[in-house]
Write a protein that binds this DNA or RNA. Sequence first.
DNA 1: TTGGAATGTCAACAAGGCTGACGTATTATA
DNA 2: TATAATACGTCAGCCTTGTTGACATTCCAA
Lengths: 168, 168
Amino acid sequence: MSVSSSNRSQKLLYLTDEQLLQGIELMFFAYKGFTSDPDRILEEFGYGRAHHRAIHFINRWSGLTVNDLIDILGVTKQSLNRVLRQLIEDQLVESRVGTEDKRQRNLYLTLAGEALEKELATAQQARVRKAFSEAGPEAVQGFREVLENMIDDGQTAHIMALRKEQAR
Amino acid sequence: MSVSSSNRSQKLLYLTDEQLLQGIELMFFAYKGFTSDPDRILEEFGYGRAHHRAIHFINRWSGLTVNDLIDILGVTKQSLNRVLRQLIEDQLVESRVGTEDKRQRNLYLTLAGEALEKELATAQQARVRKAFSEAGPEAVQGFREVLENMIDDGQTAHIMALRKEQAR
DNA sequence: TTGGAATGTCAACAAGGCTGACGTATTATA
DNA sequence: TATAATACGTCAGCCTTGTTGACATTCCAA
């Protein structure tokens, strides 16, 4: 435990402008590192970050609909469609007509799609694993708590909806 | 202290694929939230994230050179110049010929620039402060340790160089 | 049967990355 | 002192990825 102080201003030292500024820059630099490894791989395939995000969440929630993906990514259907069309043409993603609602399209990774997903995930996980293991389990727990509190409420709602869907 | 186990596999539970995957998605969603508030303000001014980043670091390292900023942001001079030109035209940033090396340009925020910087910082800090205070000081420390380990080594070198410069 | 939802697609545009090329001071060096 | 290298600005052109608006199709549900 830290050397605690009964002084309230002492207790809140971690919320000073300087601490917040450091946190803000940390987010900027860390996010750059976080995306750098997958970015290099994607470049070889002529893809961008948008493709990675689509592949990631299609893998995560296999069979999710186009609208699900739009909600998660927070982009327009036109923007997503451009990326999705490429991935389908390149046979990394399969789009199947919905069984219950035939207007919907359920998205799945093909074997080739899974292979690329794995390659991207491995690269990204390596960096996160390094960061986690060097910081230790307690630090990782703190990392999680802070980031969870930074997320917009609307975002988590979409994920909750998918959890329910998948539970069916 | 946590309920520790002598079993090594138990100790490394925080490094499972599932934990890493959660960490990766947390980074994605948290970064989206992190940028959302400044983005709304910037839109009113017809600026983008690139302008925010320039303004932030010119404020942080007042008088830094164009090359310093290029190194920090990790963009090309052409890309930065487009943004910088607007900010100088709009009188938010001032570019002064270097005193020692007249080839260099030292960058400063004008009063108007400082005003926008403050507005952006206040919005962004509010979210980070909320996340920090809800998570608590120990969690913030963990957040810092993990993110620091995610940053590329090259990045920190640029910051170190600026620290030295400013110490002069 | 009819309105609205889900999807796909076309067009046009903007931000913000990139490369390559060129010009101009200014400084460093051979 | 002549030459090379550096810092900066700018022009042109390209790419990715976001946006809005419009329109067609298919299908569900009231």
